[in-house]
Computed example of a mutant assay.
Amino acid sequence: MTVIVSTDQVTPRDRHAFFADLVMQTHFRHNMNFLEGPRPFSASIASNQLGPLRINTVLSGPAHVSRTHRLFSHDPEEYVLVGLQRRGTPRVVAQDSGQEAAMRPGDMVILTSYGPYASVYTEPVEIVSVMLPRPALLVPDSDLHSLTGGVIRGDEGLARLLSPFLSRLADTAAAHTAEVGEQLARNVTDLLATLCAERLGHDRIDAETAQRALLLRIRFFINRNLADPGLSPESIARAHSISTRYLHKLFQGEGMTVSRWILRRRLEECRRELDRRGPRTPTVSSVARRWGFPHLAHFSRAFRAAYGMSPREWQERSSLPAPGVAAA
C-alpha cells in the first residue's frame, strides 16, 4: 500500500519542520536548509515497501540537504540508497571525495547512510529513492565507497535498463503482492550489484547473479513486445545474443516455459483491459489483437482455460455496477 504524506497538511510556517521530520521517518536524519521561493514551500513523499526495499517518490521545493558524520550515530542501521532523478537538475557532492556533479532526469546516484554527502536543489525536484539494507548488496565496501556520490548517467550501459525500471517500479509498487514484491526486491538487488561491477570495470559477480540479471532484462523485453504476434523464444534469444536452449534453461526456475510466460503476460494485460469500465468499452477482438493474439478463437480458448470463463463473459461481469451502487 502506498503511503503518501504532504506538507499541504500543515500551515506554510510549519512545513519546513514537518518535511524534515518526514524525511527522517522515510529515509534517515539530514540537515535541511530550505531556499526561499516565490511560493510557499511544498513537498510530499509517497512510500512503498517491497520486501526489504523501501521505495520513496519525493517531490520537494528548493532546498539544501546534507548528511554529516555527526548524524551517523542517530541512525545505527546501515543502508544503501539509490537516487533516481525524475525532474530537476540538483548538484550532488560526495564530501569524502569532494566529487560534485549535476544530475539530469534519468540519472542515478548511489549513496549510503554512513557516508557524508550533500545535495542542492535550486528548483523543484522529483526523486525516486530506493533504500536497501547494506548487507543485502553483495558488493565489497571498498568498491561501494569508490562509487558513492558519483553520478551514473541514465543513458549509459546497464543504467539504460535500470533507470526506467526503477521509475516504473516506483509507480506500480503498490500493485504487487508480497510474494512478487520479494522477487522484485531480489531482482533489483542483483541488478544493482551488476551495475556496480559494470561501473568498476571488472566482473566480481557470481554466475547466479548474472543469470538473474539477464532474466530480468528478458522479462522487460517480453513486456515491451507483447503486442508483437511474432514474439517467440527464438526472437527473444536472438535479441539477447544467447541460444534458445540457454533461454529455456533460464526459465526453468520460473516453473514454466518461455512460451507459457508470454501467454500468461498477454492474458493478464487482456484481462486488465476487459476489466476497464467507461463510456468506451473495447471490443474483445480489439483487445486480443492489441496484445498479440491474431486469432480470436485461440485467444478465447486460452482465456477460458486461465480464468474459467470467456473474454466476453469476463467483460460483461466487469461492467456490472459494484454492490450497493445504484444504476443510473
Results as ranks from 00 to 15, higher is better:
178 A>D: 10
181 G>T: 05
101 A>F: 08
148 T>S: 08
90 P>C: 03
59 L>C: 12
116 P>F: 04
182 E>M: 14
60 S>V: 06
193 A>S: 10
121 Y>G: 07
193 A>N: 09
166 L>D: 00
87 R>F: 10
106 G>H: 01
70 R>F: 09
64 H>Q: 14
132 L>C: 02
88 G>M: 04
171 D>R: 13
102 A>D: 15
149 G>L: 02
78 E>N: 09
51 G>L: 05
152 I>P: 00
171 D>G: 11
108 M>E: 00
177 T>V: 05
126 E>F: 04
135 P>G: 04
183 Q>I: 14
74 H>R: 15
183 Q>E: 12
91 R>Q: 10
153 R>A: 09
102 A>G: 12
162 L>H: 02
89 T>Y: 10
114 Y>L: 12
144 L>T: 03
122 T>F: 11
155 D>H: 13
198 E>S: 07
112 T>I: 09
127 I>E: 03
139 V>F: 06
145 H>E: 14
183 Q>T: 12
94 A>M: 07
134 R>N: 06
199 R>H: 05
149 G>M: 04
87 R>H: 14
146 S>T: 15
90 P>S: 02
146 S>W: 13
85 Q>E: 05
185 A>S: 08
126 E>A: 08
135 P>K: 10
115 G>E: 13
104 R>M: 12
133 P>M: 09
143 D>V: 14
71 L>H: 05
181 G>V: 04
52 P>C: 08
58 V>S: 04
171 D>M: 11
139 V>Y: 04
54 R>A: 03
103 M>E: 01
117 Y>I: 02
129 S>F: 09
162 L>R: 00
180 V>F: 10
197 A>C: 08
